[in-house]
Amino acid sequence: MLTRIDHIGIACFDLEATAEFYRDTYGFEVFHSEVNEEQGVREAMLRINGTDDGAASWLQLVQPIREDSPVAKWLAKNGEGVHHIAFGTADVDADSEAIRDKGIRVLYEQPRRGSMGSRITFLHPKDCHGVLTEIVTAAPAPASGDPSGH
Rank of each mutant, 00 (worst) to 15 (best):
Y26G: 10
F28M: 15
F28A: 15
F28P: 00
E29H: 06
E29M: 10
E29K: 15
V30R: 12
V30I: 11
F31H: 15
F31Q: 15
F31W: 14
H32V: 02
H32R: 12
H32P: 04
S33H: 12
E34I: 05
E34C: 06
E34Y: 05
V35Y: 07
Q39H: 03
G40S: 06
V41K: 00
V41H: 04
R42C: 09
E43P: 03
E43W: 14
A44G: 13
A44Y: 06
R47Q: 05
I48N: 12
N49Q: 10
N49V: 02
D52G: 09
G54W: 02
A55G: 08
A56L: 12
A56G: 05
S57D: 04
S57R: 14
W58Y: 08
W58Q: 09
L59P: 11
L59C: 09
Q60P: 04
Q60F: 11
L61G: 00
P64S: 10
P64M: 02
I65H: 08
R66A: 08
E67S: 13
E67R: 05
E67K: 11
D68M: 01
D68N: 04
D68K: 02
D68V: 05
S69A: 00
K73I: 01
K73F: 02
W74Y: 07
L75S: 04
A76G: 07
K77F: 11
N78L: 08
G79E: 05
G79M: 04
E80V: 10
E80C: 03
E80Q: 15
E80G: 07
G81W: 00
G81Q: 01
V82I: 05
H84K: 08
H84W: 09
H84I: 09
A86S: 08
A86D: 13
F87R: 10
T89M: 05
T89P: 05
A90P: 15
A90G: 06
A90D: 03
A90S: 07
D91Q: 04
V92D: 01
V92P: 13
D93K: 15
A94M: 07
D95A: 13
S96N: 07
S96Y: 02
S96G: 07
E97M: 12
A98L: 13
A98R: 15
I99L: 07
R100N: 12
R100S: 11
D101I: 06
K102W: 00
K102G: 07
I104S: 09
I104Y: 03
I104G: 03
R105I: 03
R105D: 14
V106Y: 01
Y108H: 13
E109W: 06
Q110G: 09
Q110A: 11
R113G: 08
R113E: 10
R113K: 14
G114Q: 03
G114Y: 05
G114L: 04
S115D: 14
S118L: 13
S118N: 06
R119N: 04
R119H: 10
R119A: 00
T121N: 15
T121Q: 04
T121W: 02
